[in-house]
Design a protein around this nucleic acid. Structure first.
Lengths: 212, 212, 212, 212
DNA sequence: GATGAATGAGGGTTCATTCAT
DNA sequence: AATGAATGAACCCTCATTCAT
């Protein structure tokens, strides 16, 4: 008999909802199975019917967070792909807003701190989130390169540089609780400066790559 | 009472050595005082003769790590301050090497994950490390701006952008255990690209600031 | 949730039995939860399923002792209320026997020593035991006063005097382990002398109250 | 070499002063040797040069308390031994005041609670305090009996009855923290009533002994 | 003789996990 | 399939005692 025959997906979701709440508030070590069960509205025993243990429940929680918060960052929706500056600004703003949000920070902190203990988890996080965003942006950059609008010989790395520029100042300060919040103005300023420096570095006739 | 109230400094160092090992391996919550005592080669009781509790021991450990790993990054030593590309390459390489080192990563992971619980600690980490590096680089950038070699209207923010560029690709992958190590070649490539893009953005007659 | 939220009443009783043993032997501070669990035949964790902590377990233990040993002292049963000497002898004997019993002494010792730390507990003990006995005896004395058989202008205080007389010699010696046991003859002698002195002091035409 | 050759009585007294403070505040189990050493102004090691351990130090402390507080209760000083009511009132007031004092209560509570563990201690307390007072009062009663002023066939037991009467109401309520303090008026009232009932019971032609 | 750093057993309490119901 | 009482190892911390200085 398979798992899907005897266990209800609704209850599984119910458990994960409780786990999201508790893990986000208290981290991995700080969370107790008893509290998760209570918040989820199930018994402690039921937790173990759906997940082999705390670590597995935590892994499922993180995967859910990735799917929710990171997947939608790079939805190629209304951004005008033909206006480089505007397009980059849209993408960078979405990414930065996610990274300085409480939810994003919490997930990042937990995945980071548990990376030595749950490496496959943090790798999954990387693939589901940053890697997807990089790949998507790199595709757009490659097309800009082909069309001659920008000079991007290594689109993957250029995408990584752009996202790094978007993290200037704010991300580290938020991660380390130096700042308690980031204003939309701060975010806009950082993204604008990132776009400016990035475009300066990718101007069609600008010097590329190594600076030596 | 004399200044040497610290009991025996050697034993204190011995305890901190053990604490370094254990905290680095297991994080704050995951570490037990019993194991720290065992690894340090002292009794559990002795731990409490030197530190008021687990939190204090942890704080002392982190402060020690800051002093060790972060303080020396921006030593203004032999870097040729008159060769912008070379100077930036030196600074960036030092910073990046520190950030992808096992020691640096471990400290970063712990400080990050415990920031909500020990905010004064993570703020101290920020001030002792990143803030000092940013201030120092900003000073150099301001002098370049005055001399006309570079165009840097906001040196502080520019320094933050440069260090962000240096983190492209490698840092996140190391933090998340996607990569197990970073080769000198990779480091050099990232730093060179960071210097190139930064100098392109700071060229004396380049467009500055917002891109809109 | 039903009224039977007390988990299993049998197990609760089992724990309290163990707690009685251990607290009686070692007092509050001297008792360890580990030993109580061992003596009760449950695991340490189970203790905390039934009681929030050591203090709560101790309070429950004392309350149980009060209910057991003090409640039944002044049962208004077969004592002939119309024979003053006989009635007082019956009441006094019951009270004294309880006070010099091992169980009574143990409870008294613990409640006494922990009164500064658990004042509500010792006050509850006073109300459940001595106060009830005093009130009951005072009621009887008031009726004797009205009928003219005795002269008891302050029945409450007179009751307190009677019970104090019953404690002469034996109680303190038992409390302080000077005597290891009290014989029925000793008890009878003390009670008889108490009744004699009390009745002499309450004779209808005897001088009352202050002696000055 | 004997103890008295190498150890200074002053330091011993200094230690006992600290022990008095700490034991009185925290009881036996609640007191730590570290705090006693600190309060006494000596090192922990010195404690063990003067006393074999915590139990011995505690015993010495209690003995000192007995000598101080109980010894002087029955000082046969200015009380007029020829005025029975006045004499008894003086003795009873001294005794009751001592028993409801904070110091007296504290010592009583500790000795009581530790009696099963330190029986020789509580017996010493009984002999040094209550027994001496009883003996002294009994001697006076015997002389009154011989002179015909009172009828006291069993002076020892009569003395015990008198002191018991003096404890009516107040002592138990103070011991159990039902009352936080006792006013001089309350004390006078209790003692006066005790003297009145006692004298009524010892009137030269009153019925003596058993009431059956 | 005095010190106080070091010890390690034991304190109360929490919690992931199991299993009879 | 769901429960939650029971478990016991492990947690952080305290403290009486020892012993090298």
């Amino acid at each position: 008999m398979s798992d899907t025959e005897t266990l209800s997906p609704e209850k599984r979701a119910q458990i994960l909802t409780g786990a999201n709440t508790v893990f986000s508030e208290d981290g991995y070590e700080g969370s107790s199975m008893a509290r998760i069960a209570q918040v989820a509205g199930v018994s402690k025993g039921t937790l173990y019917n759906y997940f082999a243990g705390k670590a597995e429940l935590f892994a499922a929680h993180i995967e859910g967070q990735c799917a929710l918060t990171l997947g939608q960052v790079f939805a190629e929706d209304g951004a005008n792909a033909d206006d480089p500056a505007g397009f980059l600004r849209t993408i960078g703003t979405r990414m930065l807003e996610m990274m300085v949000s409480d939810k994003g920070l919490t997930t990042y902190r937990i995945v980071t701190s548990e990376a030595p203990k749950f490496p496959e988890l943090s790798q999954g996080f990387y693939n589901a989130g940053p890697a997807r965003a990089i790949t998507a942006l790199a595709g757009w950059l490659a097309r800009q390169h082909q069309s001659g609008r920008l000079s991007v010989p290594d689109p993957i790395f250029a995408a990584e540089q752009f996202f790094s520029l978007c993290q200037a100042r704010l991300c580290l300060r938020r991660v380390l609780h130096v700042d308690r919040t980031s204003s939309p103005e701060e975010i806009a300023h950082v993204v604008d400066a990132a776009v400016a420096m990035f475009l300066a570095g990718c101007a069609p006739n600008a010097p590329q790559g190594d600076a030596r």
